[in-house]
Write a protein that binds this DNA or RNA. Sequence first.
DNA 1: CATGAATGAGGCTTCATTCAT
DNA 2: TATGAATGAAGCCTCATTCAT
Lengths: 183, 183, 183, 183
Amino acid sequence: MRADAARNRARLLEAAEKVFAAKGVSVPIDEIAAAAGVGVGTLYRHFPTKEALFEAVVVSRLESFVHAATDAATSDEPGRVFFDFLYRFARQAALKRDLFDALLVAGIDIKSQCADLVGELEGGIEHLLERARDAGDVRADVTVKDVIGLVMGTCNAASQANLDEAACDRMIGVVCDGLRADG
Amino acid sequence: MRADAARNRARLLEAAEKVFAAKGVSVPIDEIAAAAGVGVGTLYRHFPTKEALFEAVVVSRLESFVHAATDAATSDEPGRVFFDFLYRFARQAALKRDLFDALLVAGIDIKSQCADLVGELEGGIEHLLERARDAGDVRADVTVKDVIGLVMGTCNAASQANLDEAACDRMIGVVCDGLRADG
Amino acid sequence: MRADAARNRARLLEAAEKVFAAKGVSVPIDEIAAAAGVGVGTLYRHFPTKEALFEAVVVSRLESFVHAATDAATSDEPGRVFFDFLYRFARQAALKRDLFDALLVAGIDIKSQCADLVGELEGGIEHLLERARDAGDVRADVTVKDVIGLVMGTCNAASQANLDEAACDRMIGVVCDGLRADG
Amino acid sequence: MRADAARNRARLLEAAEKVFAAKGVSVPIDEIAAAAGVGVGTLYRHFPTKEALFEAVVVSRLESFVHAATDAATSDEPGRVFFDFLYRFARQAALKRDLFDALLVAGIDIKSQCADLVGELEGGIEHLLERARDAGDVRADVTVKDVIGLVMGTCNAASQANLDEAACDRMIGVVCDGLRADG
DNA sequence: CATGAATGAGGCTTCATTCAT
DNA sequence: TATGAATGAAGCCTCATTCAT
C-alpha cells in the first residue's frame, strides 16, 4: 500500500471514530469523508461499505482492549489486576462515548472480524476473572458476560446521562464492591 | 373519542413499542403502521410525528415506573422497599429491551411531557434512596443518578447481549450488593 | 333540500370564498370545513370534489358580475356606464384578491357551468363596450377580451403587489384613459 | 466547476423554466428532473430546495430585464426609450407565461437574491420613468409600481387567456396611451 | 488513484377522498 | 344525515453507493 493511501486510511478511521462518537452512527458518510479531508470516493476505496467502516472503527477499539487484557494476564496480584483492568476498561469506554452504544443499539450486526475480537476479549477477561476468583477476590457466581455487561452498561449509562468522571468512578466503584462481596 | 379511534391508538402504541424494541428507533414508520394493522395516515392522525409516537411510547413506560415509585414511598422497611423497587424496575426495563437505549442514544431529544416524567421518576427514586440511606441500608456516597445509571445501564447491557433473566438478576444482585456495601 | 342542509351549503360557500382568498387554492379542504363549522363529510355531501367547491365559489362571484353587466345594459350614457362598470368590476376583483388569480393560474380548468357564465359575462361586457364605442367614447380597435384582460390583469397585479386602493384606482384610471384615447 | 456539472445545472434551469411555465409551480420536482434528463439527486445537489430552484429560474429572468433597463438608461429620447422598454418587457413576460404569475401568486416568498434584483429592476425602471416624465412624455401621477403592475398584469392576463401576440400588443398599446395621456 | 457529481430507492409527511360510527 | 377517522397515493428530500472526470 502506498504511503498516501495508508495515511488516508488512518485519517478516515480517526475521523470516523470522532464523527460517529459525536453524532451517532446515522451520520451521513459524506460528513466523515469531509472530516477526514478526502472525497467520498476515497472513503469507498478503503471501506466498501458504511458498515465496514464502522466495523473497522470498533475493531481498532477492541484491539486495544484485547492487548490490555493480555498484558494483565500474568500478574501475581490477580484481584488488583482484575479490578484495575475494569477501571481502565471503563474509563476508555466512557471516553469514547456513543460508540459502543451505537454498536450495541443501532441494529448494525457485528460481523466476522469483530466477532472474533469480541471472543478474544471475552477470553482475556475470563482469564483475569478466573484468576481473581481463584484468589478469592471475586464472588463465585458471576460470569464474564455479567462482568462485561455490568461495566459496559454502567459506562454507557454514565456517558448517555452526561455524568462526570467522578460519577462514573463512583458507579464503577459500586460495581466492583458488588463483585467483591460474597453475594 | 370514538371507540375505533381509541382502539387504533392503543394498537399503534402497542405495535410501536414492539417494533421500536425489535428494530430500533430508525425503523420506518410504515412498518409500525403495518404492524398495527392501520394505514400511515391513521398513525399520523394520532401522532403528528415519528418523534411524537416514540415519545408517547416512552411516556407510557415511564408512567408505570413513576406509579411504582410512588406506591413504594411510604413503607416502614425502606431498605427492602428500595431494593425491591430496583429489582422490579430492572425487570421491566429488561423486558422492553432497546427502548430506553434508543431513547438515550438515538439523538431524539426528550421533550416536554417526557422530561417532566423523568423528573418525577427521579424525584420518586430519590425519596426511596434517601429513606433507605437514612436507615443505614445504602452507602452514603451515591446519588439518584448513579443508581438509575447503574440499574438502567445493567439492564440495557443485559438485554443487548441477549442474556437470560437469571443473568440479569445476578447482575442486579451485584449492583445491589455494591450499593449496600460501605464503599 | 332541508333547511339545515341549505344553511350548511351556504356556510361552506362563504367559508370557501374566504379561505381560498386568504390562503390560496392549495389550502387543505379540512380547513375549509373547519371554517364552515362542519365536518369534511358534510362538505363532500354538498360538493363531490375540491374542484367542484372551487368552481361553485367562482360561479357565485361571476353571477354577481353578470347581473351588474345586465343592469347596466340599457343606460343612455353608454360611455359613463361602461367606465363605471369597469371601475366597479375592478374594485370587486381587487377586494376578492387571490381568487381570480388562483382561478387563472393554479391549473384548475374551468368547467361546464363556469364556462357558460364566463361566456355570459363576456357577452354582457361586449354589449356595454359596443354601445360605448358606437357613442364614440371608446377607441375602435379593442376587443372585449382585451378590456377584460386589461382590467383583470391590472387588478391582479395590484392585489398581488399589495398596492393600496388609491394605486389601484390610479392604474384603472390609466387603463380607462388608454381606452378612451384615439389609439 | 466540472464540465458535466455545469451542463446539468444549465439543463436543469432550462427544464425548470419550461416545466414551471407549462404546468405551474406545483409541478412535482421529479418531473423537472426527468425533463432535464437527470436524477432527483442531481437536482438537489444543484438546488437545495424546490423553492431555491424556482428562485434561480426567476432570478435569471429578472437579470435579463435589469440589463435591458440599464442599457436604456442613457438615451437622449427618454419617452421613446421608456415605452420601447415597456414593449420589450411585455413581450418577454408574455413569452414566459405563468412564471411571473406563479411567482406572485403561489405563496412562494421572494428571498434574498430575488428581492435584490427586484429592487434593482424597480430602480432601473424608475430612472427611465423619471426621465420620460421630465421630458413631458408621461403623465405625472403614476409610480413605478403602477407602471410595473400595469404591464405585468396585462401580460399575465394575456398569456392566461391564451391571447395572441397582436392582442397583447394592442393591450400594451392601450396602457401606453393611458400613460401618455394627461390623466 | 482521488474526486465529487450523479443516481434513485426509500424515508417522512400531507391531504383528497371514502367509510364506519 | 353529519361526523371525523381511516386510507394510501404522492410529494419533498436524504444519503449510501456508483461512476465519469
